[in-house]
Write a protein that binds this DNA or RNA. Structure first.
Lengths: 112, 112
DNA sequence: TGTCCATGCCTAGTGAAACTAGGCATCGTG
DNA sequence: CACGATGCCTAGTTTCACTAGGCATGGACA
């Protein structure tokens, strides 16, 4: 998957994953990988700073839990996060429609 | 239109515009603006360096013409440019399908 | 006649976003 | 007991598009 294209869309992806329920960073990474069937296999250096940024922005709330001896930081969407997700989805759709208008490439779920 | 999302998609847009026939830089800018109904209103500082880069990469060929007293540099898609455009379209579709898989946002031409 | 806007080209430096590459710790398995 | 998977973190780099400036011509309008 093209890395450059990800720019500007990372928040959308993270918020969408967390929409299905709270998760910790590592689970977000694996969840993203699974949902996209390997398409989005993002490094930790991308995910963790982004989660911190989203929390800083008030879109996520986090709390520490311990599973066995491993500490996890679990993130949950805040109400502002839900609103931001909706805005991100709309923004993505606007952009993708622009691309369609210029290139003629439409996108649905099914492969060609 | 979100500026960050453009990253990685600029070549696709430029090549797609030039697919309809040769054009000079300024015409690419206005063509892009019209096709997207104002969505992609990109500054010259974005377009010109990108066209130079694409020519350097062998995807475009250019020649100077003069219209009245105004000099224009007209760009044409090379065969490699056509192939690159096809690859860009495929890359975009792959990416957009990944986004769909994660977020559920499908994109067709028609607005909601 | 002079000024201003659209046309038309260009580039050095900035800024924003994700990534690289490293560090640290625990747990299970061979 | 070593190594991979789990799990967290951050400083610095890279990679893109953009900002902000420069330059020139032609037409319209005062």
């Amino acid at each position: 998957m093209d890395k450059e294209r990800l720019k500007g869309n990372l928040d959308l992806l993270l918020l969408a994953v967390l929409e299905d329920g709270p998760a910790h960073g590592y689970a977000v990474i694996t969840g993203l990988r699974e949902r996209s069937e390997g398409g989005f296999d993002l490094p930790e250096g991308t995910i963790y700073p982004a989660l911190h940024r989203l929390e800083q922005a008030g879109l996520l709330a986090s709390d520490w839990t311990t599973n066995g001896g491993r500490r996890r930081r679990t993130y949950t969407l805040t109400p502002a996060g839900h609103r931001a997700l909706a805005a991100e989805r709309a923004g993505w759709q606007r952009f993708a429609r622009g691309i369609f208008a210029v290139t003629g490439v439409a996108v649905t779920g099914a492969p060609a």
